[in-house]
Design a protein around this nucleic acid. Structure first.
Lengths: 195, 195
DNA sequence: TCCCGACTAGAACGAACGCTCTATCTAGTG
DNA sequence: CACTAGATAGAGCGTTCGTTCTAGTCGGGA
């Protein structure tokens, strides 16, 4: 067996969570989709459904962080980097038939009322992504306050643009937001570092 | 009876939807919360749960559109108008204990896979809000293309900022995004119309 | 007075939910 | 070979889901 049963469960759950949320995803559906059985799931995750979801959210977190980091590292100019990131997200979203959106938003919104590990995992993911953007901006010479506000704006706007793109089944919202974010970053008039 | 049973059902459902999404909200919970009975709900909404949800989404749509329109009309300068809007949203979010977020996002994300009236209602809401912003910008002398892209960005960013604010239980993301959006709008260098 | 449509009320149904339980299989160790 | 911990397998538990159904209440026109 190439991939462990545990890993198959986590990956399948991550995909299901981003498509139909936490409440909409059943343990038995996870079992079927991951080619595992109920016994296996409860063996690896004695915490039940929520424990599986937490692991899946963390998986989606790392996956998106890797994509984001790759985009940010590929371009020295932060404005270009954000553009490249939105382009990549738009392409991926279209390819999935507009269903594979942000891996944490759906789950996060459903578990807001209750204090849970799941909610914490979602918050950690969002804040981690924001930190990646902030560090990039700091490395390009932005002031600390500007970098922080811009990072929050970039992540929030991308988050919202992904939802808008999904609902309208169109790449345009993501691309338009990418262009405007690039303009906003450039408006600070900081020269991009040359390689 | 001051408010009709039908209205109570719609209002209660709208609040439940924005807090816990579509799948997470049960018909019986709607009945309890709205002081109605199952019979009443199915009497007014023969289409069942989805029909109730569609009416509730449309209600939330109009409610938010009214708030948005009020913010936009209160300030002649579009940048100031967006700032005022994010401030108002931040205050409302905090007051609700970070649970009453965007009325359609949660429901929209859960019903992406299937072609449904509910999904259409969510798309209509988002596009309607975007149009409000676009018309404001057009009225201020923005070029058609700029107004369209900016409107998409404003709505998407606010949408995402609201999620970020909820997850972090903080007003700051909404306020920061508001400031950056104002800066972006001003970067076009178009003089705000004087009253 | 009767009646009828609008509305209220909640018992009951089959399906699906998360989870527990026992049983079986498998790989590694003595 | 026997033994055991790890992993797999799924029947079945109690509960809740959305929906259907029958029964009852009530005000106003014939």
């Amino acid at each position: 067996m190439q991939t462990s049963t545990r890993e198959r469960i986590v990956v399948a759950t991550a995909r299901l969570l981003q498509r139909q949320g936490y409440v909409g995803t059943g343990i038995k559906q996870i079992a079927k989709e991951s080619q595992a059985t109920l016994g296996s799931i409860y063996h690896f995750f004695p915490g039940g459904k929520e424990a599986v979801a937490v692991a899946a959210i963390r998986h989606g977190d790392q996956e998106f962080a890797a994509l984001l980091k790759e985009s940010l590292d590929s371009e020295p100019d932060p404005a270009e980097a954000v553009l490249s990131c939105t382009r990549e997200l738009a392409a991926g979203l279209k390819e999935s038939g507009w269903v594979d959106g942000c891996p944490v938003t759906a789950a996060a919104l459903e578990t807001l009322g209750v204090e849970s590990d799941l909610q914490q995992a979602c918050a950690d993911a969002l804040n981690g992504w924001e930190r990646l953007v902030r560090d990039k901006l700091l490395g390009c010479g932005f002031a600390a306050d500007d970098a922080r506000e811009l990072a929050t704006t970039v992540i929030s706007a991308i988050e919202g643009a992904e939802v808008t793109a999904q609902v309208n089944r169109s790449e345009e919202p993501l691309l338009a937001v990418g262009r405007q974010l690039a303009r906003l970053i450039r408006s600070y008039g900081i020269d991009p570092p040359r390689r």
